[in-house]
Structures are given as C-alpha cells and as structure tokens.
Amino acid sequence: MLTLLFGIVLTHFLASAQALPSLDQDAILRDHLWRELRSKPKGRRPVVGLALSGGSLRAVAHAGVFSVLDQAGFPIDVVAGTSMGAVMGSAIADGMAPATLRELASNVGFRSASNYGALNLFRLAFFDSPLSSEKTERFLAKHLRARRFEQLKRPFACVAMDLNSGEAIIFREGPVTPAVRASMNLPGIFSPVEYRHRFLVDGGVVDFIPIDAAKLLGAQYVIASITELDYATSRPKSMLNTLEQVIDIRGSLLSREQRKSANFLIEPQVPDIGFVESPRLRDSITHGAIDAAKRLVAGQESLILYSLPWLAKDWEKARP
C-alpha cells in the first residue's frame, strides 16, 4: 500500500519537478535578447571580462563559476586572475573545457605547487628557509597548451607584487607559467620569484580582485568572481592559514573600492579550506557552481541591459 502511495506522490513529483522554462514576459524577452547578444561578434557587443580573485584553495570555486557561465553561453572575451585565480584564469584563457578545468581544480594543492614535505617544513620552521614554488611551473606546463600569453586563446593577465616597491605588476605578455607562479607565490612561505629583475610575491596582497587588469585587456563589462572568506567566523588552524588570512584580509580591504567597479559580482560562499585539505576541493567547486547558478538570471539581465546601446545601434541600422 505504501509503495502505491509513494508511487502516486513520486509521479506527481516527476510531473512537476523540472518545470519548463518560464513563459512570462520577462523570460521570453530575456531569452530573445540573450540569443541575439550571443550571436554578436566582438565589436558589435561589449568586451566581456572575467576577473578571478585570489583566496588560496577556496579560489578553485572559480572552476564551478566558469562552468555555469560557459554553459549559459556568457561571451567571456578576456580573463584576469590573481593568485589561485591566476591558475584558474590561465586554464580558462587556454581554452580548457569546463569539465577538464574542474578536474584540474580538484587536483591543485599545496603539494602540486611546492616542495612541501616534512624536511622542508622543518627547514622553514627552524632555519628560516622558505619553500620553493617552482613545482607550480611544472604543474602548469603539464596542463596548459600555450607557453606564452600571446598563444592563449583569450587575452589573459595576472597580477603579482614587487617585493621591493610594493607595486602591482600586471603580466600580459611573455611566458605564462613564471607569471602565474609569481601571482600565487605566498610571501613568507615561498621564496620570492626572481623574474625580469624583480622579486615577486602573491598578487593577492595588492590586487585581490584584478578588475583593473581585466579592463587593461580591453574589458568593458567585468564579471568578478570573488572567493572571500567570512573572516568574522573563520578560525585559522595553522600558521599557514593564519598568514594566508592576513594576506587575504589586507588584499580584500585594498580591493573594497575596486570591487565597486565590477559590473557583476559572483561571490561563492566557500568555507575555509586548509592548505592540505585537498579532498574538500570538490566541495569548493560545487559551491562556486551553486552560487553562480543562483546569480545566473541576474547576470544575464545585467549584461543584456549593459549591451543595449550596442544592440539598439544594430536595430537602427536595420532601418530601410
């Protein structure tokens, strides 16, 4: 009897669970204009940039965000990233498919980026000898097809900080892997990267959300994916996490003004992840996708409204 009852309720559920796309007036117009916008080549619509914040391992959530944006057909023309956002961004700019990107994101971690190990941690703690992030370059070289910025499928920029001047250094040409490595080179833990006569550390210190970098690449409309932590409730469990939180707080405070210049924000509510908690990376990616999916319609509407002057120009041109 109970099975029959469940059957009745299940059938009801199946009939109603996956509602058909809404046919209200807003939905009809949104679908129509979204289709029109997507069909426009660059130049006849705004250049759309994706800015990916730092945030250590939390920032793998960008892979989930990108999956949702890509599936919905957001025309991402340029990409900018800081720190882990630079790793994700370089893969997106390289044309990596969302499924592959998610796989890559679930395999990044402290071990894939450094010579992390018991002996080196001992040396770091007792002999003030920082770890090396050289392994990051090998990891990236293994996964990216392009070797130089110019070979990437989408224009890409990443940000690091000059340890001597405190300047934000925006890379957008030359070899990709050392630039991305510099962008995620956590100060205090990793030795500074010596590159082009500068000593470089993690860009998250000075430019947590690289919106200016995206604009430098020509973006007129910037979608920012920000993986900030709720610092009020976070309880760092280790020296590394404490240091990372200090850097992130400083970076995000400096970015307060900058985030206002983004056209659309997606802020995945990703819980804190320790440096060696790689099994939780998949949860972060899912969080990114969930929060992006929740903001999807708002994002489409925002981009359509921003693009109206471009679209309307074409409608006027169509006059006989």
Partner: peptide, 16 residues
C-alpha cells in the same frame, strides 16, 4: 509591471 521588460524598454529609450 514586468520588471525586465520595463528596464529594457527604458534602456532602449535612453540609447535612442
């Protein structure tokens, strides 16, 4: 009363 249609209409008006 349709919020998005209204915003689009206002946007097109502005751009004309």
């Amino acid at each position: 009363s349709e919020p998005f249609v209204a915003k689009v209409a206002a946007g097109v008006l502005k751009s004309l």
